[in-house]
Design a protein around this nucleic acid. Structure first.
Length: 182
DNA sequence: CATGAGATTGTAA
DNA sequence: TTACAATCTCATG
């Protein structure tokens, strides 16, 4: 039986220097994370049947992971992520994204190759856009092949900000943006 | 270097 | 089956 993203049972907010994020939990784990000032989906009814202690533990981890991410650092530990709503390709992509260290970037085509579908760069972009847990699943580290930013569901300003923070914290060695040196 | 058309894949309607 | 998407590549001017 397939768990669907509509099985959200808890909704909780996280205060950050950039505003209040909203986390949504299913019985399997963190199912969705929203940026601040987004029209939140209708508030989720709290299901008392779900073990509240689990959610609180998960939420504590999410809180730490998110705050670390917003400082350009890798999270110490992640809660279970409920990505069961995604297609097979999406889950492949999301799993791979978590293996890209902070400060590093991959192009959409590089991700496509890494998951065994070298021609599917565009489909990868689409899969990134479907990522329900931004920041923790670092879809912002995927950029265009020509060095551009590419798109971002939460708004490109977030993507630029996240990459900026990470580069500041984990500077890349001697890779000047432009190749031409006189 | 800037621009645009064509190629390509995966999804949802 | 059709249309769309967070792309890529290559041919031109």
């Amino acid at each position: 039986m397939k768990l669907r993203s509509t099985d959200l049972r808890h909704q909780q907010e996280i205060a950050t220097p950039y505003g209040r994020f909203t986390a949504y939990y299913s019985r399997a784990g963190l199912a969705r994370l929203d940026f601040p000032d987004e029209p939140a989906g209708s508030s989720v009814a709290v299901d008392s049947g779900l073990a509240t202690t689990s959610v609180e533990q998960w939420h504590s981890l999410v809180e730490q992971a998110l705050l670390a991410g917003l400082e350009g650092q890798a999270p110490a530990e992640l809660p279970p992520l409920d990505v069961s709503g995604g297609t097979e390709l999406e889950q492949l992509v999301w799993a791979f994204l978590q293996r890209i260290p902070p400060g590093e970037r991959r192009s959409y085509s590089e991700v496509a190759e890494a998951i065994g579908r070298p021609q599917a760069a565009r489909a990868v972009g689409r899969a990134c856009g479907a990522n329900p847990v931004p920041v923790l699943i670092p879809c912002h580290r995927v950029v265009t092949a020509d060095g551009g930013l590419g798109g971002y569901s939460g708004g490109v300003h977030w993507k630029r900000r996240l990459l900026d923070l990470e580069e500041r914290h984990a500077p890349i060695f001697s890779s000047s943006p432009v190749a031409s040196i006189d």
